[in-house]
Computed example of a mutant assay.
Amino acid sequence: MSHSSYELKAEARERVGKGSSRELRRNGLIPAVIYGDKQAPIAISLNSNEVTKRIHAGGFMTTVATIEVNGEKISVLPKDYQLDPVRDFTMHVDFLRVSADSKVTVEVPVHFINEDKSAIKIGGVLNVVRHEVELHCPANNIPEFITVDLTGAKIGDSLHISHVKLPAGVTPVITDRDFTIATIVAPAGGLAEEGEAEA
């Protein structure tokens, strides 16, 4: 289900701060930080193109990566990144150090299937309330997406998190209610009745 892992080579950064970040970027590198797992954060620099390519490939935030720093291989999950809004390159990434038994919190995209077996086929409109759902997952079992099956859904139906078969060990962050992921609503103009003259 999940994207295959990948490896990034990194250099440890001695200097941190605005000036050194600018210098890194001039050299095609970006500053990043690895934190978590009750250890001191490590400031690193990464190849900017490689990271930007990974982000555009999709699944960046749900794929555990291995970062090699000074010969040490560290398993990480990206937690946050900043893109330069103008020039579309990565400015900074935060990585969370994970181990096989780490639990992580990830926003996972929702995919909808079997729209043609639901009221959408007769003109109903899928109103997506949540395009992503926040889940607690084992670091080594993060779903790339979750799937909502629309088979048999009628106008006025709500599809809740309980409709979704989540992988083993994966639980929603919101547990106090069966929250709605999407609803199927009548189109703005109403459904055409059988045999009704077209206006």
Rank of each mutant, 00 (worst) to 15 (best):
K117M: 14
L166V: 05
C137W: 08
E11H: 08
G156V: 07
L191I: 13
A43S: 13
R130S: 04
N49I: 09
V110P: 11
S118L: 06
A153F: 07
I55D: 02
S118R: 01
I142A: 04
N27K: 15
G71Y: 13
T147C: 10
D88I: 12
I30A: 00
L83C: 01
Y6G: 14
T175R: 11
K103N: 12
E50N: 10
L77D: 03
D88M: 15
R97A: 06
L135K: 08
G59D: 08
V33S: 09
P109S: 09
V185A: 13
G58C: 00
R87C: 06
K53Y: 03
A186Y: 04
S45F: 00
C137M: 08
P187T: 14
E107W: 05
A188N: 10
A139V: 11
G19T: 12
P78F: 03
K117Q: 15
E107Y: 10
S4R: 11
P41Y: 03
P31A: 14
P138H: 07
D176F: 10
H136M: 15
D116V: 08
S4Q: 14
H136C: 09
I30Y: 00
S158V: 00
V133F: 06
Y6R: 09
K117S: 14
L77H: 02
Y35S: 09
S162P: 15
D176G: 04
L166C: 08
S75W: 10
R25G: 15
E194Q: 13
I122G: 13
N140C: 01
D88H: 15
I30Q: 01
F145W: 01
T52E: 11
L8D: 01
R13E: 04
T63F: 07
E50R: 00
R13H: 02
A65E: 04
V33P: 15
H111N: 10
V110Y: 04
K38H: 12
A43V: 09
K79F: 04
P167I: 03
D178A: 07
V16F: 00
I155M: 06
P109Q: 03
S75F: 12
A12G: 13
N141V: 01
K9H: 01
L29N: 13
A57D: 12
R13T: 11
R177I: 01
I30P: 00
E194V: 15
R97L: 03
I146F: 02
I161H: 06
F60H: 06
K103E: 11
I142R: 01
